[in-house]
Every structure is written in C-alpha cells, then in structure tokens.
Simulated scan of single mutants.
Amino acid sequence: MESSNQGRHYLSMPAPYVRPYVGPRPPEKHHPHLPQRPVWACKVCGDPWPCEPAKLLMLMEYRKHMIALAMYMGTHLHDAVADFMRLHPDTPPDSTELFDRFLAWTNPRQHRT
C-alpha cells in the first residue's frame, strides 16, 4: 500500500520550472555566395565570383588550411577557364585577371598581421 501512496505523491508534485531560452537569436537564413556557372557571377550579389563576402567566408573557413583553400580555388579557376572558353571560343580569358580573381588572394602571407 505504501508504494501506491508513493506513486500518488510523485504525480501530485508540480512540474519543474524550465527557464526560457535567453541566448543569442538564431541567425537569419544564410544565403551562401556561390558561383552561377558558366558566367561565374555570385548568385547572391551578382559580383564576379568569388565576391568579397565569399572570399571572407572562405578565409574564415580555411583559416588553418590555406593550402587547401588555394587548391580548392585552383579547381574553380580550371573550371572557370573551361567555361569562359566555351562561352567565348574566339577570345581567350585574361590569365592575369583570372589568377588575381581566383588565386592571388589565397596567399597566406598576404593575410598575416
């Protein structure tokens, strides 16, 4: 009989108070700055990709792996050259401009303080 009284005791206890979440607000929906191929413009801002927000996000993401970032961007450079050659077969893309756009900013020595 005691065990049945004990069960009633637990059922009659009030529920514990749970404080509402007071942390930072969840971030707004994130729209990644990705390339629109084959023209290589940013899908969000329309600037030539990689745009400044994309570069900043990649520098933060790859901050401990800058060589991997350069390799990643090198593959994009390769794809961009192929796309530009398909779009404009009679006019080759400017290699210096594409190097600066896709690879020069990934040099870790440029980002040391």
Rank of each mutant, 00 (worst) to 15 (best):
H30L: 00
C45K: 03
Q110F: 07
L59I: 07
P93A: 12
L98F: 07
L34M: 09
G74D: 11
S95Y: 05
N5L: 12
W49I: 06
Y21N: 10
G7E: 07
A15Y: 02
R86S: 03
D94N: 12
P35Q: 05
H30T: 00
A82G: 13
N107W: 08
W40Y: 08
H111A: 04
G46S: 02
A15H: 01
E52G: 06
A41L: 10
R37A: 11
S12V: 03
R112V: 08
K29S: 00
S3W: 10
C51F: 14
C45L: 03
P108C: 09
R101N: 09
L103Y: 14
T75S: 01
I67M: 15
V44N: 05
Y17T: 15
P108I: 04
P32T: 11
E61N: 08
P35M: 09
P14C: 11
R86N: 00
H65F: 01
D94V: 03
M73I: 00
L103K: 13
G23C: 14
V18E: 13
F102N: 04
S95R: 14
A15P: 00
R25W: 01
V39T: 15
L87R: 11
P108M: 13
R109D: 15
W105L: 12
D90G: 07
D79V: 06
R37G: 06
Q36S: 09
L87G: 08
R109P: 03
T96D: 15
M60W: 10
L103S: 08
P92Q: 05
L34I: 13
K64N: 01
C45P: 06
S3G: 06
S4V: 12
P89M: 02
F99S: 07
D83V: 01
F84T: 02
L59C: 03
